[in-house]
């Protein structure tokens, strides 16, 4: 490098050159190599764990979806969509299960708006599922961190069995068995929580017609 340049300029030129080299290594070669191995060895996961039905992609097992009544979907009307009784319902979402708007409500633990919202949800879910308000579990009345949580607790899934069975003309025992088959234990028995994947459960329900 030209020694005639002032030290401070030479120093910054060195910095720029090393940044460019490291950008090529960590910003291009590395992610491309990871992508190559990932797509080669784990294509299903790398592409987002997609659900397919009759050859059509129907979303991802990782991302929650809306199961609202037709014509009641977000956008336009401004009010919250009404849940479809024929589907298992996911948790409330701060972003309406839009993957381009992930995030939480960020309402504080003593925010009166959150307290009222939780109480209103509890009453609505109890009425919808025909259970006592005190029996509605916490995950049914709270929004998740991502707004895309595909899971609910086993308790909330079982709570919805009778309502779904009635709406579909199925025997409650059949739907109950379907839920039981979808209850996932903690990972390795001790990591995280027990849960039911609503997207997979409803996909199985749809498969039954």
């Amino acid at each position: 490098m030209a020694k005639s340049l002032p030290l401070v300029v030479r120093n910054h030129l060195t910095a720029l050159r090393i940044l460019i080299v490291l950008t090529l290594v960590t910003g291009a070669l590395y992610p491309l190599a990871v992508t190559g191995v990932a797509q080669g060895a784990f294509p299903y996961q790398a592409d987002g764990s997609r659900i397919t039905r009759h050859g059509t992609v129907m979303g991802s097992t990782l991302l929650g979806q809306n199961f609202a009544l037709p014509g009641e979907r977000p956008g336009g009307s401004g009010r919250a969509p009404r849940p479809d009784p024929a589907w298992f319902q996911p948790r409330p979402s701060a972003g309406g299960y839009d993957p381009l708007a992930s995030g939480a409500s960020n309402l504080g633990p003593n925010n009166p708006v959150l307290v009222r919202t939780v109480e209103a949800r509890r009453a609505a879910v109890a009425r919808f599922d025909g259970v006592a308000p005190g029996d509605v579990p916490a995950d049914a009345v709270t929004a998740s961190g991502s707004g895309l949580d595909p899971h609910i607790s086993a308790a909330y899934a079982y709570e919805q069995v009778n309502r779904v069975a009635r709406a579909r003309g199925l025997r409650p025992a059949t739907v109950h068995a379907l839920v039981t088959a979808h209850v996932q234990d903690r990972v390795l028995g001790f990591l995280g929580e027990r849960r039911v994947n609503v997207v997979q459960l409803n996909a199985a329900l749809a498969g039954r017609g």
């Binding site: 633990p109 009345v141 709270t142 849960r195």
Partner: peptide
Amino acid sequence: AGGMAEGKEQ
């Protein structure tokens, strides 16, 4: 809510 589930993933 019956638990600190707001903002947490199931």
